[in-house]
Amino acid sequence: MTGKTHILGGIAASLAVAHTANENPLIMVGAGIAGALLPDICHSGSLIGKKFPILSRIINLIFGHRTFTHSLLFLVLASFLIDRFFPNDVLKYGLLTGMVSHYILDMATKRGIKLFFPLSLTVRFPLTIRTGSKIENLIFSILTLISFYFGYESLSWFGVGF
């Protein structure tokens, strides 16, 4: 998936969680976007990889792309580190929600992900799409609609009327 689709996936997922859990949607969305971009730190051409090129190259050299940073192990490690250094549940749930949305979107591609790293098992959906395809654009559009719906619902819950 492209970076813009991952960002929108993080927004849609974090708004849905914010609405369901009655949490602050602004913190959830900010953290959701960061979480949606974080797994691609292993790819120097990604949005986050371009911001941290040395770290991106090191991670890619050690693990490769869509392995450790796309795994449940990384998700658990991120959760532990957030608890240790930023003990804020809304921030934590937003980041983890964004990361999970990234994993789900990448599982919809032919390359899939190494969800159970260090095992070499590739996890992907039975039907996959090509990155940048018309189907990805359709997914982007659907995520946009979901974001508008849950954004409206979440902001209404917090007293921001339209």
Score class of each variant (00 low, 15 high):
1 M>C: 00
4 K>D: 08
5 T>K: 03
5 T>V: 08
5 T>C: 01
7 I>V: 15
10 G>T: 05
11 I>P: 03
13 A>K: 00
14 S>D: 13
14 S>P: 05
15 L>N: 15
15 L>C: 13
16 A>D: 06
16 A>L: 15
17 V>C: 13
18 A>F: 08
20 T>Q: 07
22 N>C: 10
22 N>E: 13
23 E>L: 14
23 E>K: 03
24 N>P: 06
27 I>F: 10
27 I>G: 00
27 I>K: 09
31 A>N: 05
32 G>N: 03
33 I>T: 04
34 A>T: 10
35 G>P: 08
37 L>N: 10
38 L>K: 08
40 D>Y: 07
40 D>M: 07
44 S>R: 09
47 L>K: 14
48 I>F: 04
49 G>Y: 01
51 K>S: 10
52 F>Q: 01
54 I>G: 00
54 I>R: 02
57 R>H: 03
57 R>S: 09
58 I>E: 08
58 I>F: 15
58 I>K: 13
59 I>D: 07
59 I>S: 04
59 I>P: 07
61 L>K: 12
62 I>E: 02
63 F>G: 08
63 F>A: 11
64 G>P: 09
65 H>C: 04
67 T>H: 11
70 H>R: 13
71 S>W: 04
72 L>Q: 07
73 L>C: 13
74 F>V: 05
75 L>W: 15
75 L>V: 05
78 A>K: 07
78 A>W: 11
78 A>R: 03
80 F>Q: 00
82 I>E: 12
83 D>T: 08
84 R>S: 10
86 F>E: 04
87 P>R: 11
87 P>E: 08
89 D>V: 08
89 D>W: 06
90 V>E: 01
90 V>R: 06
92 K>V: 05
92 K>L: 13
98 G>S: 06
98 G>M: 05
100 V>R: 03
100 V>H: 01
103 Y>S: 05
106 D>N: 03
107 M>G: 01
108 A>T: 08
109 T>C: 02
110 K>M: 11
110 K>Q: 09
112 G>A: 04
113 I>V: 14
113 I>Y: 02
114 K>N: 12
116 F>S: 03
117 F>R: 09
117 F>Y: 15
118 P>E: 06
119 L>K: 14
119 L>I: 10
123 V>I: 14
123 V>G: 03
123 V>K: 04
125 F>I: 06
125 F>H: 04
126 P>A: 05
128 T>N: 08
128 T>L: 02
130 R>I: 01
130 R>V: 04
135 I>L: 10
135 I>P: 00
136 E>P: 09
138 L>Q: 08
138 L>W: 07
139 I>R: 03
139 I>Y: 10
141 S>T: 14
142 I>T: 07
142 I>C: 13
146 I>S: 05
148 F>L: 15
148 F>E: 13
148 F>Q: 11
149 Y>M: 01
150 F>Q: 06
151 G>H: 07
152 Y>V: 14
153 E>Q: 14
155 L>Q: 09
157 W>Y: 15
159 G>W: 11
160 V>N: 05
161 G>L: 11
162 F>A: 14
162 F>S: 12
162 F>E: 05
162 F>Y: 14
